[in-house]
Design a protein around this nucleic acid. Structure first.
Lengths: 343, 343
DNA sequence: TTGAAAGCGCTAACAG
DNA sequence: CTGTTAGCGCTTTCAA
């Protein structure tokens, strides 16, 4: 009996062999008791589970992973952990993973394509699948990754790759309707990163909605999607007919708020400002920001759930990716159109 | 030759055996070429590396981990991923890990002791060591973990367990000196969670520093370390001689700002407010918050570096944990003591 | 339903 | 310096 020769119950963590010996069954039976409980006599299984608990046996995921490839780990790679947009995504993803007893590897790529490639590379042989947030790598690189591991991308539709996204179009329509209802006739969009799919999407949606509502729209930018970026946009805001600005995201909106305050334009009396995302801090600034709330946590959760489904063998939903609904949060930065504009 | 029987170069990812065959060397030599380059002939090593690169071989971390126990993974478990204090810690930790080609597992325990235990349990057999942020579990449980894996805890000294911490004492002294220099004579500390080591530390340090500077101090609380917590503290602020408040953290300070504004007390004209941490958003609120900046990113980095050092065999620095220096950031929420107080 | 045996891909003695 | 030989702990045929 080969198993007799296995290590005796020394100080280190117990193995399947220890349980087998204690129980008087073969190691393979212990293994089965844990990995496919159906295939073992119910009472034997129970006895095995008892002794396992007693001697403190816990299956070793590494050892399991070697023959099966199943590591119970998924990788989440995001461009910037410190970007408030991602906190909630991370939490949602982590919660969904933990719920399924999966462990989440987190990588921060610092917005750099090279680091993103490295992170994927580093995690590839260890995770069962990936969730990629706002990826910087090319569509073809993405498809290559998808060929090796199940993959879900966030907020970016890529042919043949499953993704989940915010319903940008609906969000921008909400913003436009809100402003329209307040009587604004001319609005300016302050754009985020040029290459961003989300930015293009948001701009097009806003324009469409605004036009339908008989408002004039123009676009300024691109700007880096940050507070300084928003401040930089303010000078270009002056001199038009604009009485309301909608920004690519909240950081930009907060920057616009700042910039406007600096040059003495009062918000919302003289100018209304609407952000996008509803990040932590959007209600801290003053005036508190009216913004389109993106279901960030739900995004993380949905992505992981989708990934786990694929891992369980569900077909990859590559076509129409689900669009998560937005919600308009009206706070203090929007008000009816001023009778006489001043900017 | 046993190795001859190993799988031939089929479609799946190449192994050590594939490289060995291509190169005409033994598998163990290939292994050595990657794991201890010193122990193999330089030119052979180079040749191996070449072919490895050519056929796309990459060492399988799972397979490596099984015999060695070295997974190149560390676990970071934090109470709340969405708490702005932790973003920077996470980023610092992740960067330090990536720098050493380590992968980081992240777990969010939602401030719950049970989830913290589960997370540690889940990660235990897969990581080489842990960094635990603001752990909720007992000292003895912590020591038990430390017995199984190298461990570094954040902001909480535990006997026999290495830790890194913010220099709370110095931070509070900076706050007290700032307020003293502005002429304040009576200050109130708004306390955070009762059980928190950091809270106790901050309060004692503030009191000591204030007393030395001939200021009166009192303590209010405990309060949950959140914006609502800060708002809840405001009523108790009235009626004393207090002209300045120092809070356990920024969230509380922002809450105090809000609460004060609501009851018509002007900051900083009538009351000065100082926070702690300098989280994202501390400069977004209005007035922008004067606060003691904690080196959060450095904290994450230092913890991981310490952990990696232990992994390399350095002795666990359990005694005096390093204290990372704070920095006072003066913004708009503090001003000279009002001539006539009003609260 | 259970046991025996053969690996998963890599590392680590131990010889040579 | 290099090859040979056992495993790491678990899963998985294949028989019984």
């Amino acid at each position: 009996m080969a198993s007799e020769q296995r290590r005796s119950g020394d100080g280190s963590t117990p193995t399947i062999y220890d349980v087998a010996r204690e129980c008087g069954v073969a190691p393979s039976t212990v293994s089965r008791a844990f990995s496919r409980p159906g295939r073992v006599n119910a009472v034997t299984a129970e006895r095995i589970r008892q002794t396992a608990a007693r001697i403190g046996y816990r299956t070793n995921p590494i050892a399991r992973a070697l023959p099966t490839g199943r590591t119970s780990m998924i990788g989440l790679v995001v461009p910037d952990v410190t970007n408030p947009v991602y906190f909630e995504v991370i939490r949602g993803a982590e919660a969904a993973a933990a719920e399924a007893s999966f462990t989440m590897l987190l990588a921060d790529t610092q917005e750099q394509m090279r680091l993103e490639h490295e992170a994927i590379e580093r995690q590839m042989s260890v995770v069962e699948g990936f969730v990629l947030g706002t990826s910087r790598i090319s569509d073809s690189a993405l498809r290559k990754v998808a060929k090796q591991r199940p993959l879900v991308v966030l907020n970016r539709p890529v042919a043949d790759v499953p993704s989940v996204a915010i319903d940008n179009a609906h969000g921008m329509r909400q913003a436009a309707e809100h402003l329209g209802a307040l009587g604004h006739r001319a609005i300016t969009y302050v754009a985020g990163p040029e290459a961003s799919w989300a930015d293009g999407m948001r701009w097009r949606s806003l324009r469409e909605a605004a036009l339908e509502l008989n408002m004039r729209v123009r676009r300024l930018g691109p700007y880096p999607p940050t507070v300084p970026g928003g401040m930089a946009a303010v000078p270009s805001l002056r001199g038009g007919a604009t009485t309301a600005v909608v920004t690519y995201n909240d950081l930009l909106a907060i920057g616009v708020l700042r910039g406007l305050q600096r040059i003495g334009v009062r918000v919302p009396d003289e100018m209304s400002v609407v952000g996008f995302d509803n990040i932590f801090g959007a209600d801290l600034c003053s005036p508190a920001l009216t913004t389109v709330a993106a279901p960030l946590r739900a995004l993380g959760t949905a992505a992981v759930r989708e990934l786990l489904a694929q891992l369980r063998g569900a077909p990859a939903r590559t076509g129409n990716s689900p669009f998560l609904p937005t919600r308009l949060v009206v706070r203090e930065s929007t008000a009816p159109r001023p009778v006489r504009r001043r900017v």
